[in-house]
Design a protein around this nucleic acid. Sequence first.
DNA 1: CAGCTGACAAATATTGAAATCTGTCAGCTG
DNA 2: CAGCTGACAGATTTCAATATTTGTCAGCTG
Lengths: 201, 201
Amino acid sequence: MAPTTETLTAERILEATEEVLRRHGPAKATVVDVARALGVSHGSVYRHFRTKAALREAVTKRWLDRTSEALFAIVGRDRAPETLLREWLCALFDAKRRKAGDDPELFATFSVLTGENSRVVDQHIEELTAQLTEILRDGITRGAFVVTDPEVAARAVFHATGRFHDPTYAGSWKRPEAQAEFDAVLDLLLRGLRAADRPQH
Amino acid sequence: MAPTTETLTAERILEATEEVLRRHGPAKATVVDVARALGVSHGSVYRHFRTKAALREAVTKRWLDRTSEALFAIVGRDRAPETLLREWLCALFDAKRRKAGDDPELFATFSVLTGENSRVVDQHIEELTAQLTEILRDGITRGAFVVTDPEVAARAVFHATGRFHDPTYAGSWKRPEAQAEFDAVLDLLLRGLRAADRPQH
DNA sequence: CAGCTGACAAATATTGAAATCTGTCAGCTG
DNA sequence: CAGCTGACAGATTTCAATATTTGTCAGCTG
C-alpha cells in the first residue's frame, strides 16, 4: 500500500505484521497481506522470517515484552515487599485485561500461541516468574515473607493467580465480580507468604 | 443393537448415551447412534430429552455428580480442619486427573460444556465451592482457620487451585512436575488460611 | 390411549473441486 | 552481488453441492 524507498528491515516487517494482525486477526492475516502493506513481494518477507509461524511469534514476543518491561519497572520500586507484590500482581492483571480489551486481535494471536505451547509464551511466563521470584527473595531478606524456596513460591503464586492472567479466562475479566475475586485470591496468598509476626492489617 | 422388552426410561437412555459418548466422543456421537444402541427410533429419545444438548448435559451432570458425591463423603470425615481441606483438595485433583485419563471422551464432553458455560458445569462448581465453604466454616469454629467470609475464601481457594481441576489444563496434569506444583499452591493457601498461633507444621 | 414409529423440513456436517496461501529458488536489477 | 522479484509446487483454505443429523408430529400399535 505504501511502497517506501527505505530498506526492508525485520523491524519494519514486524510493525506491518502487527498492523495486519490487528486488522484481520490471526485467522485471516496472510503473509501476502503483510507484503502488500509494505509494498514488497511476499518472498522478501521470507528473507527475514523463515516461516509464517516465526513471524507471528516474533510479533507476539514484541507485544509481550512490552508488558514484561512495564512490570519490570515495578520490581524496582521502593515499597514494603507486600505492597510491591500487590502492586505487581495488580499491574499484571490490569495489563492483561487491558490488552484483551483494547487489542482483541493481537490478544487472540497470543491466545493461539498459548494453546500451542509456543516457546515464546513459555519464555514470557519464565520472565514473569523470574520477576516474581525477585520480589519474593527481596521480601525474604527484608523479613517480610516466610518462604522456603522463592522460585517454587513464585511459581505457586503465578499458578494460583492464573485465572487473572491466563488468556483462557479473558472472557471472565469483564464480569463485575472479577476484581473482587482477584482481591480475595491476592489477600489469601499474601497472608500465606507473610512472616508469622505479621502486622495483622 | 440390543432391543429389550423393558420400557424406555430416561435412565436407560442416559446409560446408552454415556456408552455412545465413550465410544465416539462428543464430536461424533449422534442421537441416532443412541437410539440404535437402544433398539428404538430416535424419535423416542426426544420424548425424554427435548434436545441433544439437554441429553449431553444430563449425561455430564450424572458423571459430575459422581465426583461431587465422592468428595462430599470427605467433608464428613473426622479430621483436623487443615488435614480435611488438604484431603479434599487432593481428592478433587485426583478425581479430575483420573477422569481425564480413564474416560477421555466423557471428559472431552465435560470440557465442551465448560467452554460453553453450561448451567450444569456452573452447578457442579457451585456444589464444590459449597463443600469447600463447609470445610472452611467448620475450621473457623474450631479455631484452626482465620477467614473473614468463608464463602469468599472458598471461592478464592477454588480459583487459586483452578490449574488442578479446570479441564482447560488437563493436558498439564500428566507432567511429572504437576504434583509438586499442586503441593506448592496447597501449602501456600493453607498457610494463608491458618490461624496466627499456628502449629508451624 | 401412552408410547413409539418413521417420514419430513430445517439445520449442520461432509466432501471434493477450485482458489488461495506458504515456502522455495532461479534469475533480475540497482 | 545483496537483495528483491515473481513463477512455481505443495499445503491449506474456501465454497458449494451433497449427505447426514436434529427436532417435529401425524398416525400406528399393543
